[in-house]
């Protein structure tokens, strides 16, 4: 059985692409056959995060317009051999791919993969409509900020209108210290508005930035908190019941060190 998941958020910059890359790699680390499709035509980034930019030959627009078979456009990950990327065009725009074309493509791909992840562009326009058209499950990414939660709410409404019933929530960039002090929305605040099943709580972690720059998703870094959070998400997607991690409080020494800028 193949599961098609769209990663969406409404607001830009909350970590859709990062989440797609990490979950994709995480599933592949478990030996699953995974395809990640970038639908952010014109503003593609997924290839960068996976470190595959230089291997792209064909793109999504070539496939949907019938120029090449999708298998020719797939880029295999250099490290995880069951992970494939279907990049999108950098020169065309969102109108280049129609929802029904993506549905047709995904239907064809279902037989070959265990999971297909679709990276959705920000916004509510045609790109979004295209990205969600083929999905069984929607993963909504939000950050603990009021604007991001508001947009996620709107997106959930739109998903409902498109008859996407299975919607799961991922909260990204949590800063435990700020939550503790009450300066940041906590999980209860978010749940109260969105009331969705949450499958991930990812702390804000500098390792994400360095990993992104290197083209190696943070999930591969054992010591990283965010990497651990992503591994938990992957486990939950695979049906395991994993408790949410508790963020260690900053110890007295660490706080002292920070105070003196050490």
């Amino acid at each position: 059985m193949c599961e098609v998941m769209v990663v969406t958020s409404g607001k830009g910059g909350v970590g859709k692409t990062t989440t797609t890359a990490n979950i994709g790699v995480g599933l592949a680390m478990r030996g699953k056959r995974v395809a990640v499709i970038d639908t952010d035509t014109g503003l593609r980034n997924l290839d960068l995060l996976l470190g595959l930019e230089n291997r792209i030959m064909y793109d999504l627009v070539d496939v949907t317009s019938g120029r090449v078979a999708y298998k020719k456009a797939l880029v295999r990950h250099k490290k995880f051999e069951t992970l494939y990327l279907l990049p999108t065009s950098q020169v065309r725009d969102k109108s280049a791919v129609k929802p029904e074309q993506l549905v047709e493509l995904v239907t064809e791909m279902r037989n070959e993969f265990d999971y297909i992840l679709i990276d959705c562009p920000a916004g509510l326009e045609q790109g979004f409509q295209t990205a969600i058209a083929a999905a069984d499950v929607a993963l909504v990414v939000t950050t603990p900020e009021i604007s991001s939660v508001r947009d996620a709410d709107k997106i959930i409404g739109e998903l409902g209108r498109a008859d996407k019933e299975t919607i799961k929530l991922i909260v990204n960039r949590i800063r435990p210290m700020m939550v503790e002090k009450g300066d940041m929305l906590n999980m209860d605040d978010i749940n109260e508005i969105l009331s969705l099943e949450c499958i991930g709580q990812i702390p804000d972690d500098e390792a994400v930035v360095t990993a992104t720059n290197r083209g190696e998703p943070v999930i591969t870094i054992d010591s990283s908190m965010a990497g651990r959070a992503y591994r938990n998400i992957v486990a939950r997607i695979c049906g395991e019941a994993v408790p949410f991690m508790t963020f260690p409080r900053e110890g007295f020494l660490a706080r002292l060190r920070r105070l003196f800028g050490m």
Partner: peptide, 26 residues
């Protein structure tokens, strides 16, 4: 019979009953 999310709008000549929340922006 569901939560009204941001951006959703209900217009009615008569009364409206909602079994769910009415979120900001709705």
């Amino acid at each position: 019979n569901h939560t009204l999310r941001g951006g959703q709008e209900i217009r009615a000549k008569g009364s409206v009953m909602v079994f769910g929340n009415v979120n900001p922006g709705a």
